[in-house]
Write a protein that binds this DNA or RNA. Sequence first.
DNA 1: TTTATTTCCGACCAAGTGGTCGGTCGACCC
DNA 2: GGGTCGACCGACCACTTGGTCGGAAATAAA
Lengths: 204, 204
Amino acid sequence: MDKTLKRMATMHRMQVTGLELFYQNGYYNTSIDDILKALGLSKGAFYYHFDSKEDFFISIVQNLVVQKFYSHMIEPIEGQEDPLNNILNTFENSLATAEHNSLDHGFMLSNFITEFNGKNPVIMKYLKDIYQIWEVNLVSLLQKGKSDGYVARHVDSEGVASYLTASYIGIRTLMVEGNSRTLRYQYIQQLRQYFKMLAQKEMA
Amino acid sequence: MDKTLKRMATMHRMQVTGLELFYQNGYYNTSIDDILKALGLSKGAFYYHFDSKEDFFISIVQNLVVQKFYSHMIEPIEGQEDPLNNILNTFENSLATAEHNSLDHGFMLSNFITEFNGKNPVIMKYLKDIYQIWEVNLVSLLQKGKSDGYVARHVDSEGVASYLTASYIGIRTLMVEGNSRTLRYQYIQQLRQYFKMLAQKEMA
DNA sequence: TTTATTTCCGACCAAGTGGTCGGTCGACCC
DNA sequence: GGGTCGACCGACCACTTGGTCGGAAATAAA
């Protein structure tokens, strides 16, 4: 068991550092040597634990990326009260975190989707799955919001969910090129207006 | 002048093919040899016309990308009637074009912004400028819409513009991973609702 | 036809790339 | 102590990268 522990510990260290660099510089722009140098490890160590660079990245997605996504974007939106409020708060918190992180490099998921699109269908599948978990969660939350009277019944939950994820991805992309404070404020403000509409029983 | 013409013609051919491949595979993932092979030209020809790969890319942005952006995203939204309607139609047309293009690789501008962020500030500047032209145009259009009575006076033009560009960037990013038809429909539908709100004289 | 100049060729280079492989070293078992 | 085995080392390989350079066609000027 000790051996297994050591093995796991090393693999985990590699994955953490790997994700950091992949997120920072992109997958194709980060060499295995870069990661190994940051870790003080050698080629031998890497290929002892992982089959290939791709295998390594997939293991990172399955372990770290999924986990991060759940804890930052999925779990915080769940709750018994007004789902629109929960979504708004979760989005605002995420944007605030990004804003105050000078090392922010955009929305991890959409960055990778953009990079792998048309190049690696296998990895794309994993990323797509994460996105869909996000959307499904939003939809069911909005549906529940309808039963609970927080969301107007005429609202198209799927449409709103797509619209929400799209706008969030977009604003995160824009925030990387500076001016993030204003962008966050404007975005939340507009989202608030939009949600006010979704909550209304009747449209004019 | 003939020489200049030939020179320009070759350079233009290189730029067109270059943009095609850069858009398809990304800048760092497209080698000069790839482009040259597609053109049937040699290394010598390339470095005779351009100083470096970066110089080449910048020339592409300044010539082709800016031009494309103007003709597809800026000029179509201008008009005397309802600006909200113009924006909606322009966005819908762009999304429809992307949807019916099986070779679509996402929104060019945001793809490049994502790729160059934190890696090449010089190129980032050029991309950022294009984005800002977009936003400025949207803002002034919305302002005019206010004077003309199409847009409610309480609306924050800057905020709406940011929100619009963000949502468009996001939906284009999502459309690359399939299901583009549904996404476009949902997006336009939600945008319509949102615009209805912006046009209203008073909020409930 | 010679001469000059623009345009293009392709061999070459140093610096990387992902991946392989024989070997070392220490912890544990007998 | 000897042997086994998991964990790691680092030289090495074939290949690709952006970029250089001497020279050769093509074209225009004389």
